[in-house]
Design a protein around this nucleic acid. Sequence first.
DNA 1: CCGTTTAGCTTACAACTGTTCGCTCATTCT
DNA 2: AGAATGAGCGAACAGTTGTAAGCTAAACGG
Lengths: 202, 202
Amino acid sequence: MSRAEQKERTRRAIINAAFSQLSADKSFASLSLREVAREAGIAPTSFYRHFADMDELGLTLVDEAGLMLRQLMRQARQRIEKNGSVIRTSIETFMEFVTGNSNVFRLLLRERSGTSAAFRSAVAREIQHFVAELAEYLRKETTCPDELARAQAEAMVTLVFHTGADALDAPPEQYAYLTSRTITQLRWLAHGAASYGRKPKE
Amino acid sequence: MSRAEQKERTRRAIINAAFSQLSADKSFASLSLREVAREAGIAPTSFYRHFADMDELGLTLVDEAGLMLRQLMRQARQRIEKNGSVIRTSIETFMEFVTGNSNVFRLLLRERSGTSAAFRSAVAREIQHFVAELAEYLRKETTCPDELARAQAEAMVTLVFHTGADALDAPPEQYAYLTSRTITQLRWLAHGAASYGRKPKE
DNA sequence: CCGTTTAGCTTACAACTGTTCGCTCATTCT
DNA sequence: AGAATGAGCGAACAGTTGTAAGCTAAACGG
């Protein structure tokens, strides 16, 4: 096996080990280099051949999580074309992501307000992709001026993200309720922004 | 000095030490019993005379933070009576809390999605106070049916809380923008909910 | 006033942590 | 073929952590 190939392989082993150790009661900050190395099947010191420290690993994880999010968006667009209902399809796709990759979502959720400024801004950047794309859609579909389209998109993403967080601690039989509640909230926003589009005076 | 009195005094010293060690780059999870004890001016083992473990301390901190939040609400009500503008006054009061007690707000923000289920539900409970109170207000002031008043209140609290989180990483000159953006979002919600109050068919 | 209670201390231990150093040995380059 | 590279390893070190055991001395209750 080629050397570069093998190196990439154990690099992946490290990343996978880290992801698999994340859980409801274990955050990235509570992972230890030694534990990750152990699960990846390498000596603790070999870790340094791939990452300078745990922070570098963490940023890599956030990047990968962001990648998954973007793939998700692409998937949602395809579904919308076939299905029609924009809001419902988007949320349902997102909820599937949250429940199917809860560790990945938890990583983003936690590091968004975590103790590392680098992590926080990395997560913020990933979420901005969501917001920017949604804002552009709103600009096309509605008569909303640019500035307000962005504010509307931010509110929507905030609400959806928050619903994902709720779902992590809710029993599955509540997913349907959470989803429909969020749909209602988004419709309010859309409707309010449309008929109240002029900038408020005060 | 009375014994009970002295005990309460060092208990407070522990709590204060914990609060003061929280910061942008230090979460409660990253506090150590020994560090807290050191700053409180007691031996590590004396900690156990007051709390069974760090988790118990943490729950106490969350309780105290919730208390501050409720005091804040009371203060906001008073201001509203004198000032009039409900939404703007509420948000400005909240933003003052966030910037003036950022460590306290950070505690709630982080433990809301932290690694301890007990912490998460404790924070959720504190936030529910906000939601319940706002929902009741909406029921009185508007024609919104109960169920929808709650959903509206939840969305509003979510947006305001999120804005607080944004403020933590934003330079002070952006506070005004964040505030006005959120005001716009809340008005959309209120307007949308009022004119779109009937439950959506799908 | 004397026995009990108890907050706080010192000492100690075992379990981890991240990181340095020097080595091996298979792959790669010349 | 021979030299250089570099992934991975084992041993070791200096810190830190939570917590147990037992003591002291001051406040308390009878």
